[in-house]
Design a protein around this nucleic acid. Structure first.
Length: 721
DNA sequence: GTAGGGTTAG
């Protein structure tokens, strides 16, 4: 056994423990990463080797036997992590030595990263800096053709010595210019091209996402025996990452190890981010730990990477782990870390904790920036925390915290989420008067959302005209909001016109827009209007129109309906399936075609569009219609009453309580499902009454229900399936 | 845009 190998496993007999095995870590170990599953009992058969420990005197360290790639090295870890048996129960040592550090002078552990960050060379002052900068600007401004560039190069004010060339190279902006200048300097053969020239050029190429060129330069360095250092590798890796070429990023990291170069913390956190972006949480954590075991004290950037990763996974335990690690290591979170963690808290669905974290940040003396506030506003909006959102807005204004147009738009979206029409209008006007935050397509969309759902059709149409005048693009969501508002106001003519303009301008109708058009169909009273709306829908989704027509043909049998329905729903985006079914039911009910409505509800249930519609416990049966349209909710109620009637007739067991949930419609613009459902209960003379404690909840006892059923004539009017 | 790493919108 290679005892000098990097620690793959935790030996329960070890007296020295890495800090990450502290009890606090165990309490909050992130999901899917149970370190305790690793045991010394079954280490990999041939523990892989990484590099030698860094020698204090050398800048970089070579690996004597770099035979295994990183992924090969990681594989045993990831395959054993989940399959190994849990460790022995005796954890008393862990608890008694939470702060011990993974360093045993008698048996030094292999390092996975160099603790010394690569030093940069120092610049000496160049007295010609002004001339050279000016010249670089000339090169930046000239035509990007080779001819034009070479013509300007003739005017170089001082000879292109190493220092002069480097200064110019550093001042060039578009990657094409940097690349041309680099090639020119190389062709002059005045001095050997050192690593720094490649690094500067690569950085510029990275701005242009020119990964292929960067890779060519790297290969050229290898060919010409020019050293690739940590700066070279981190630039290559991050360029690949930003171009979403993750396999390339990993490949170059592995190549680096194979040449024996140790990553420093910059390269190391770059690769952590690569694995994080790939969603490889276990790999990231094993790299993190092994870095920690090498004596690395991660900096805020590394923690931002971890925080982002856990946020993307919605993993709240992971977020707590990051906070805990920072506290244990005495690393103060900076603004970016706070921003990342706030965002992560939002994604993990923890608005209250996000709020506390924000207050902690402000108390620590940090000033929130646009990104901080955007994250928080979004969280409050999604949580429907109107009071917190408005208080925050007030604080933003009084503290003069920074605003940008993304924050403005997020505030507008928050207003739409909360139905804050006046506030939205004020924000929108602020934007119009501002210099740098003029309303864009997003802002208009948010306003169309607010006006469309708030029934302010004239205001919405005014914005629509304004957009045309200002040349602001109407996107599919704005179009949907507008059509929704116009449909509700029964302004079918305007609706058809808006749809036509939108399609003409390139809006591609999606399933949400089709669902919206379908809901407008359900609102039509005149055949003429219905035909106009259907003709729009015909352009967007002809199969859906066919289904609407088939449903209205009473001669067509259930099996055909079922086939057509399955066909349409199967090719519909998942989030639009239930709305489609709801609208189809509404359309049938409006045409007094109740039988079809019941068939559709049956089909919707059959294909899983209404999960959780019925909830049964021994004590209570509940009908939850909160995600149903009015027509669908009525249909479901009728269906339920029919079923309950039969159960009573058959004298089967019944619970004590029955309830129907419609929701109370906290949203200002909600349709009043509760009210309409209540009317339908009355119409059916169903024994439910509105609960006094809970709005949007209708309740009945077993006795109510039994006496109701007994009072019904056997040929009850209630439709039963 | 200091030769290299991390954060904002349906």
């Amino acid at each position: 056994m290679a005892t000098s190998a990097v620690h793959w496993t935790v030996n329960s007999s070890d007296t020295k423990r890495p800090i990450f095995f502290s009890p606090s870590f165990r309490q909050i170990a992130p999901k899917k990463f149970n370190i305790s599953c690793r045991s010394a009992k079954s280490p990999p058969k041939s523990p892989p080797d990484l590099a030698e420990p860094a020698a204090a005197t050398t800048k970089k360290t070579k690996n004597k036997d770099p035979s295994l790639s990183l992924s090969e090295q990681l594989r045993p870890l990831t395959t054993t992590t989940l399959s190994d048996p849990p460790p022995p129960k005796d954890q008393s040592q862990l608890i008694s030595k939470p702060k011990s550090i993974w360093v045993n002078p008698a048996k030094p552990k292999r390092s996975v990263l160099s603790l010394q960050r690569q030093k940069r060379s120092l610049y000496s002052y160049n007295p010609q800096v002004r001339d050279l900068r000016g010249f670089a600007h000339k090169l930046n401004d000239c035509d990007a053709t080779k001819v034009a560039f070479l013509a300007v190069l003739e005017e170089i004010p001082h000879p292109p010595t190493r220092e002069n060339a480097l200064l110019i190279l550093n001042s060039l902006k578009p990657w094409q210019k940097t690349h041309m200048f680099f090639n020119w300097v190389k062709s002059q053969n005045l001095f050997p091209m050192e690593t720094i020239f490649y690094n500067v050029t690569m950085k510029s190429l990275r701005f242009g996402r020119q990964f292929q060129l960067i890779e060519e330069l790297a290969e050229e360095m290898i060919r010409d025996d020019i050293e690739l250092d940590n700066i070279t590798y981190s630039t290559i890796i991050t360029c690949a990452k930003r171009s979403k070429l993750f396999d390339k990023a990993v490949e170059w990291f592995e190549r680096m190890y194979k040449t024996g170069l140790m990553p420093d913390e910059v390269t190391y956190s770059a690769i952590l981010d690569v694995y994080a972006k790939l969603g490889k949480v276990e790999e990231v954590l094993s790299l993190y730990e092994r870095g920690r075991a090498s004596g690395w004290k991660p900096d805020p950037i590394a923690f931002a990477v971890l925080g982002k990763m856990f946020g993307e996974a919605g993993d709240y335990d992971g977020i707590r782990y990051v906070l805990q690690e920072m506290a244990a290591l005495g690393v103060e979170p900076n603004l970016v870390v706070y921003n990342t963690l706030l965002e992560a808290m939002g994604k993990a669905g923890k608005p209250g904790l996000a709020r506390s974290l924000f207050e902690e940040m402000v108390e620590a003396g940090l000033t929130p920036n646009e990104k901080t506030l955007t994250a928080l506003v979004k969280i409050y909006g999604k949580a429907r925390w109107a009071r917190d959102a408005l208080e925050l807005w007030e604080r933003m204004r009084s503290n003069k915290w920074p605003m940008d147009f993304i924050l403005y738009n997020t505030l507008l979206n928050m207003c739409a989420d909360l139905g804050l029409e006046d506030e939205a209008k004020k924000l929108f006007d602020d934007m119009k008067q501002s210099e740098h935050c003029r309303p864009d397509s997003w802002s208009y969309t948010a306003m169309l959302n607010i006006y469309g759902s708030g029934g302010k059709v004239d205001e919405a149409m005014e914005l629509f005209e304004e957009m045309s005048e200002l040349g602001i693009e109407l996107n599919v969501m704005g179009c949907t909001c507008l059509i929704q508002g116009l449909g509700k106001a029964k302004r079918f003519g305007d609706m058809v016109r808006v749809f036509g303009v939108a399609v003409e301008k390139g809006v591609k109708p999606d399933d949400r827009l089709c669902g919206c058009l379908l809901s407008v169909v359900s609102l039509c009273e005149e055949t003429e209007d219905e035909d106009r709306v259907l003709s729009c829908l015909q352009q967007a989704n002809p199969k859906l129109v066919t289904l609407v027509k088939v449903l209205q043909n009473k001669n067509i049998g259930f099996d055909t309906i079922k086939d057509e329905f399955r066909d349409v729903i199967g090719s519909t985006a998942v989030e639009s399936r239930r709305p489609f079914c709801n609208c189809l039911i509404d359309i049938c009910r409006n045409k007094n075609n109740h039988e079809r409505a019941h068939e559709l509800l049956y089909l919707g249930t059959l294909y899983g569009l209404y999960p959780g519609l019925h909830n049964k416990t021994a004590r209570e049966w509940c009908l939850d219609v909160r995600s149903l349209s009015i027509g669908a909710a009525h249909t479901a109620l009728e269906e339920w009453m029919g079923t309950l009637y039969k159960i009573v007739q058959r004298e089967e067991a019944l619970p004590e309580m029955f309830s129907a949930q419609t929701g109370s419609g906290t949203h200002k613009f909600s349709q009043g499902l509760s009210h309409s459902f209540g009317s339908h209960v009355k119409k059916l003379a169903a024994p439910f009454r509105q609960s006094e404690e809970k709005a949007g909840c209708f309740v009945a006892t077993r006795e109510d229900l039994v006496s109701w059923a007994q009072s019904q004539a056997p040929s009850s009017a209630i439709t039963t399936a």
